[in-house]
């Protein structure tokens, strides 16, 4: 469960200019549902996701993940969140097994549990072949599998995806989409940002569209279609143009 209320984030830009990245964003996301956070580049999607996953501290408003405050109980929040983006890298000189062990220890999992989870995830994602190969020798698809395994290693109830399929080939992107679907089936709370409306259409139960740090739309896909037309891409452009006007 994710709840954010009046979330604000201001930081110093160039020449000490104050930049308002988020201006009072509020939404919530239920377990077993996928929440899509959409918006043009620079709208504040990544900032919002980073705040939810406690990488950044909000300058205003509040947020709770699984009932824990994202500022005061950030360590607890982190235990409950798995985070993945397309850019997320791996330690090239370590093997996938070593990476998973490392994160397992960081999440203070008992060694027996780490080992059994690694076995389980290896089977799930078909990583047997490259589990003990250095990460920098892996293909993009293999790396993404390792990254997904790392994200869910500690069985987080909440998963945050920041543009997880951007720049990936069709097969790898498909595996991510399937994984998000599986998370939903497992009853996890999923929030993800994307530019691909086909993914939104296939995965999202609810969407929030951010523009210039503010929520321009919040609701279910059907509501969006009713308001802005059946074609999601065109509806999205229409909404952004309305905002600009």
């Amino acid at each position: 469960m994710i709840e954010v209320k009046d979330l604000q984030k201001t930081y110093k830009g160039r020449k000490s200019k104050r930049v308002e990245a988020l201006r009072g964003v509020s939404f919530s996301c239920e377990p077993g549902k996928v929440f899509g956070l959409l918006g043009p580049n620079g709208a504040g999607k990544t900032t919002a996701l980073r705040i939810i996953s406690t990488a950044l501290r909000p300058t205003g408003g509040e947020g709770r993940v699984m009932g824990k405050d994202i500022v005061r109980e950030s360590a607890e929040v982190r235990r409950n969140v798995g985070f993945l983006s397309t850019n997320t890298g791996l330690y090239g000189r370590l093997t996938p097994r070593e990476v998973l062990w490392y994160f397992g220890r960081l999440f203070q999992m008992p060694p027996g549990e780490i080992e059994s989870r690694i076995q389980e995830l290896t089977t799930t994602f078909g990583m047997d072949e490259f589990l003990d190969r250095a990460c920098d020798k892996l293909s993009t698809g293999m790396r993404q599998k390792v990254n997904i395994a790392r994200t869910v290693l500690h069985s987080p109830p909440v998963i945050v995806f920041d543009e997880p399929t951007t720049g990936l080939d069709v097969i790898t992107a498909k595996s991510i989409v399937e994984f998000i679907e599986r998370c939903r089936e497992e009853g996890r709370t999923v929030i993800f940002s994307t530019h691909h409306m086909t993914e939104v259409d296939r995965l999202c139960d609810q969407i929030g569209i951010i523009d210039s740090g503010q929520l321009a739309f919040l609701g279910e896909i059907d509501e969006f279609r009713e308001k802005y037309g059946q074609h999601l891409d065109e509806g999205f452009i229409k909404l952004i143009e309305e905002q600009a006007a």
Binding site: T54, A55, R79, F83, Y91, F103, F107, Q108
Partner: peptide
């Protein structure tokens, strides 16, 4: 540069 820092700071370690 390798984009591994973000995942590290999102682990429970302070």
């Amino acid at each position: 540069e390798r984009n591994t820092l973000e995942t590290l700071i999102l682990a429970p370690a302070t």
